[in-house]
Simulated scan of single mutants.
Amino acid sequence: MHSNTESLDTGASGRPVRHLVATEAAMAAAGLDGWQQRYQQLTPGHFLAQVQQATYGDVHVFRERTNQALLEEGEARRGYLSIALPHRECADGWFSGYRMSGDTVLRAGNGQPLAMRTPPSLDLLGVTLPLPALQRVMEREGVPELIARLQPATEVRRAASEDFRAAMLAVLAASAMQSEVFNQRFVESAMRDALLMAVVSTLTHGIGDVLLPTPPARRRLVAQAYEMVRAAPEAPWSVLVLCERLGVSRRTLQYSFNEVTGLAPLEFVRALRMNGVRQALGGRQAPEPVGVVAARWGFNHLPRFAAQYRAFFGELPSETAGRGR
């Protein structure tokens, strides 16, 4: 029996994306970062596990797939919480005494023991993140006590589980890309914030909205965000960063942007940056290389930017620059 690992170098500050293939349950248990786990195989047959995992700062996302029923026991680091979701077809197995399904959000960590009996075929997506960061976002959302009330297994609405699953799969797919895009210095913080917000969105889905601001307040909020981004377009803007800087909840931010601009917050940020590049390239001042202008507005991967620019404006940035000379 053997196990092999492959580290995929994305170029982002030496951060590895790991893919583990194991033919022994014990090897699979040892391969999951941040956990002290023990696996016992419960059903007969050849065992195969695949674990994909990536780390963004202090946030860790993983996918675990196994082909035999297991008894999984273990503990995670104190100060961290793991939130996981089984695959859609999961209709068997239990987690800390609770039955699992494809809409069951599983909670573990912060030094607490876990015990899970997996179904014969498991596909589990999860994220481990620091409790203080999660708590700050929960407080911003107006539900500071929610973490303390979480059960080991919580049923969520189908829309919430599908969105959470899609968010984690998207992050893992992006992590596996061997692309220069990961040389962008803000990619790690953007991915970290996206995972934090995905967890918060899932856990707060269906909770009644807080009182939304008046229309004039919503317009002022968007105007504030506009001025902040214009002042530092190259900064690593994310929904979480905007919420923290503006002192509002995710719901308030998204509602305000949708009503005032017709766009989601980050779509608006992207449009603002694109227009900033276009205005700079089309100006009559001394010409600068397209890559220099793009980087000043937060675009650090030139081929990707050029494709996005063409899709947005119908021409390449070099064509815009040529007319301005």
Rank of each mutant, 00 (worst) to 15 (best):
10 T>R: 09
14 G>N: 06
21 V>Q: 10
27 M>K: 09
27 M>D: 15
30 A>Q: 00
37 Q>G: 12
40 Q>N: 08
42 L>G: 07
44 P>C: 08
53 Q>L: 06
59 V>A: 02
60 H>K: 01
62 F>Q: 06
63 R>L: 11
66 T>C: 04
67 N>K: 03
70 L>T: 00
87 H>D: 13
89 E>K: 11
90 C>G: 06
94 W>C: 13
101 S>H: 00
104 T>P: 08
114 L>S: 00
119 P>T: 02
129 L>A: 01
132 P>H: 05
137 V>D: 13
141 E>D: 00
149 R>M: 15
161 S>A: 05
163 D>C: 10
166 A>M: 09
168 M>W: 05
169 L>Y: 06
171 V>K: 00
182 F>C: 12
201 S>A: 09
208 G>H: 14
222 V>E: 08
226 Y>N: 12
230 R>A: 11
235 A>S: 14
238 S>N: 02
241 V>E: 06
243 C>A: 08
249 S>F: 01
249 S>H: 02
251 R>V: 13
256 S>Q: 00
257 F>M: 02
259 E>F: 10
260 V>H: 11
262 G>H: 03
269 V>C: 03
274 M>A: 04
277 V>R: 00
288 E>T: 09
294 A>F: 00
297 W>P: 05
297 W>Q: 07
298 G>W: 04
318 S>M: 12
320 T>F: 09
323 R>L: 04
